[in-house]
Amino acid sequence: MNRTHYKCSYCDTGVLRAARFCPGCQAELHCGAPVGLYLFALVAAIAIGAACSSALPEAESWAGWLIGLAAWVAGWGLLDWLYANHVTFRRNRTDRPDA
């Protein structure tokens, strides 16, 4: 397949990048990183911000949270970059291929 199409992992049908469902088997397309990784990046950024904030003097503790915010933005951007071309096809267990 070329850059404008994906190949369905269930029925081998070519699927346009802008599509939400496979026209062959109606599997749903999910693009990008899993949501759990974004949540992990958020929790890690909060932990980094809290650690940096507690390590700094009280008058400058806001800088620790700024570092945490920067870590969150960097983590989000890294996930978007790493999973830019990642696509998964999902079907409900009740879905059956056409016979």
Score class of each variant (00 low, 15 high):
M1S: 15
N2I: 04
R3I: 09
R3H: 12
T4G: 04
T4L: 05
H5Q: 13
H5T: 12
K7L: 15
K7C: 06
K7E: 15
C8T: 13
C8M: 03
S9H: 15
S9Q: 13
S9F: 11
C11S: 10
D12M: 06
G14A: 11
G14D: 12
L16Q: 14
R17Y: 04
R17M: 09
A18T: 15
A18F: 09
F21A: 12
F21N: 06
G24S: 12
G24Q: 08
C25H: 10
Q26W: 10
A27C: 04
E28C: 13
E28L: 06
L29P: 01
L29T: 11
C31S: 15
C31W: 00
A33M: 02
P34Q: 07
V35M: 11
V35H: 14
L39M: 14
F40E: 11
F40Y: 13
A41C: 12
A41S: 13
A44S: 04
A45M: 03
A45Y: 09
A45L: 07
I46K: 00
I46F: 10
I48F: 01
I48P: 07
A50C: 13
A51C: 10
A51T: 15
C52K: 00
S53R: 04
S53P: 09
S54P: 00
A55P: 02
A55R: 00
L56T: 01
P57W: 05
P57M: 02
P57S: 05
E58C: 05
E58I: 08
E58K: 13
A59H: 11
A59D: 15
A59M: 09
A59Q: 12
E60A: 14
E60V: 03
G64S: 09
G64M: 05
W65L: 07
W65N: 05
W65F: 12
W65S: 01
W65Q: 01
L66Y: 03
L66I: 03
I67F: 03
L69S: 06
A70Q: 03
A70G: 11
A71H: 04
A71T: 05
A71M: 09
W72M: 10
W72Q: 12
V73I: 15
A74M: 10
A74D: 01
G75C: 06
W76V: 05
W76Q: 08
G77P: 02
G77L: 14
G77N: 13
G77S: 05
L78P: 05
L78V: 00
L79F: 08
L79Y: 07
W81G: 02
L82M: 15
L82D: 11
A84Q: 14
A84L: 09
H86I: 02
H86W: 12
H86C: 05
V87R: 03
T88G: 00
N92S: 10
N92K: 13
N92V: 00
N92M: 13
T94N: 14
T94F: 15
D95P: 04
R96D: 11
R96Q: 15
P97Y: 00
P97K: 00
D98S: 13
A99Y: 14
